[in-house]
Simulated assay, not measured.
Amino acid sequence: MVKINGELLERDGKTVTEMLADMEISGQRVAVEINEEIVPKAKYDETILKDGDRVEVVRFVGGG
């Protein structure tokens, strides 16, 4: 189980890219942090979630 934005989900074994697709936010401007470390966007395809990881996903919203 992986804790994503405070919710426990079965996402271990998936890449960050796959997780974002599951969340239906792939292609959007986001920042991803795993265990308090920012994951560079260039590493989303190779970063695999592990059981016990704590993930925070922040979406950027424009406005004024």
Rank of each mutant, 00 (worst) to 15 (best):
G13V: 06
F60H: 02
R29S: 03
G52T: 07
R29K: 04
Q28D: 13
N5C: 15
I25M: 14
V32S: 01
I48A: 08
T15K: 10
D22V: 10
V39N: 07
V2C: 02
K43Q: 15
K43S: 15
V57P: 05
I34W: 01
V39Y: 05
A42D: 13
D45Y: 00
Q28H: 11
L20D: 04
I25L: 13
G62W: 00
E36Y: 09
P40K: 13
L49E: 08
G62N: 00
E24S: 13
A21K: 13
R59N: 12
E7S: 02
L9V: 14
D12P: 01
V16F: 06
I34N: 03
E24I: 06
Y44L: 12
G64N: 09
V39M: 08
M1W: 03
G27P: 11
T17D: 10
L20R: 02
M19W: 04
G63H: 00
A31H: 04
V57H: 07
V57C: 08
K3Y: 03
I34C: 03
K43H: 15
A31F: 07
S26A: 15
G62V: 00
I34F: 01
D51F: 10
I4N: 01
S26N: 14
G27V: 14
G6T: 07
L9T: 10
A31S: 11
D51K: 15
G13I: 07
D45V: 01
V61M: 07
L9H: 09
R11P: 02
S26T: 14
V32W: 01
D12L: 03
G62F: 00
G52I: 03
V58T: 12
V61P: 03
R54V: 14
E56M: 08
K50Q: 14
E46I: 15
E36K: 11
R29T: 03
D45M: 02
P40M: 11
I25F: 11
I4R: 01
G52A: 09
L9I: 12
R29W: 00
A42W: 10
D12T: 05
L9W: 06
V61L: 05
G64C: 11
D45N: 09
D22C: 10
G62S: 00
G62C: 00
G52V: 06
V39G: 08
E46A: 14
L9S: 08
R59T: 14
R54F: 11
V39I: 15
A31W: 04
L49T: 12
K43W: 12
Q28P: 06
G62A: 00
E36V: 04
G13A: 06
I25D: 10
G52D: 07
D22A: 14
G6L: 09
M19F: 09
V39R: 06
L20V: 04
F60D: 01
I4G: 01
Y44D: 11
